[in-house]
Amino acid sequence: MQPVFVTQKDYADLLAGNCEDEIMQELTNKKIILSHDGEDEDVLSWVRKQVPQPSISLCYFILSERCNLACKYCFLGNNSERRKLFSTNDMSREVADRAIDFFVRQLNFSGIDFEKNASQIIFFGGEPLINFEILEYVAQRINELRSKIPVLMSCEMSVITNGTLLTKERIIKLNDLGVTVNISIDGSTKEANEMRVDIAGNEVFDRLIAVLDLYKELHIKPSLSVSLSEKTIKDLPGLLSLMEKYDIKGLGYNILLCSDNYQLPDEYYEKASKFIIDSFKEFRPLGIYEDRIMRKLNSFAHSQIHFSDCGATAGGQLVFAPDGRVGICHEMLADKENFVTTVNDTTFNAKNNPLWQEWASLTPINCDDCIKCEALGICGGGCPVNARYKNPAKGLHVVDERSCVHAKTTLRFLIEDLYNIASGKTQG
């Protein structure tokens, strides 16, 4: 479906039943007016048949569950009593080798053409750089295997790090290995970063700026992972100045999650969504990519259904815990919920595993509560774990209200943006 822009008079005529033929035809072509009874049901039935089945294309290597920080909004809960749930044993070389083998098997089962599509490895934690030796080992191993194993030919590797353990030597090594570095920083001031603290409660902002200075000195560009704290979304100019200073060309925004330790006001999601849109307006002329809104824009501009905004609910993701257990969602790391097998399981196939099939069905397209939503096509849903936290009775099969606000707000912006472009052209 694509929007059709009519005048208020045309709209009044439409409601009165005497609409111009040209407009009527356009509204019918764009499926805004049904051409026959049952057309909506036909379309929905067809779209539901297109929901992708589990096909693994990415994995998380949890190199260490330990973290040297205790950020106040940590969605893993690695900042509280839950901290004792996390293992203190880091991933070994033996587990890493078996995890690579396990991942390759799933890539081969997936049916995806990895000569055209990139498989993806994300090094994660805890703080993954605590176990830098194994990160280096896995990255070297993947690079050695590229020419021998087709599904790894274009494998992309990235690390999500709090940045505090990056040194000049490590920055150069990661760059040489082809590992994209995403540094968690929430803005250009101490205030914007006040949620990011070490175990003793000390703020780490100054240490992050020192690391970014190292990157600048080495002429290497990191990406940023920006969690949208309540202070962050009040200071877009500050974030823009930080990005300009360090020549940042890519970043991802994280809309915060609620937990027992961290609650957010109801109006937060609306404000965060507006911040993402305001950022996009600034980034667009500069050629700076922000992941979250680009997924919505791609869906809108290409009339493609965005089935899932999450690797796990796309049925496309594996998570390797340091002890070799294999799960589907890294947010469940502390309790190891849904870690259902191990790297030693040579018979596992995600495509026919009930858990991966269930998660792949968690798209809003299959959710009856979402069917009448105007943003259904571009939404992709949110995080089932966050949704369950807000509404435990329904389990994982419940709407993540964060994604509702974000999707609807973004859709309104995209429609207005398209209108401004199209109408500006005719006026010009």
């Binding site: 045309d10 667009r284 005719t426």
Partner: peptide, 20 residues
Amino acid sequence: MVQVEKEDYKEMYGNLDEPC
């Protein structure tokens, strides 16, 4: 009625190339 062309959708990308 405002006519929307394919080029209008492309323009939404600005200086961004088309395809945490």
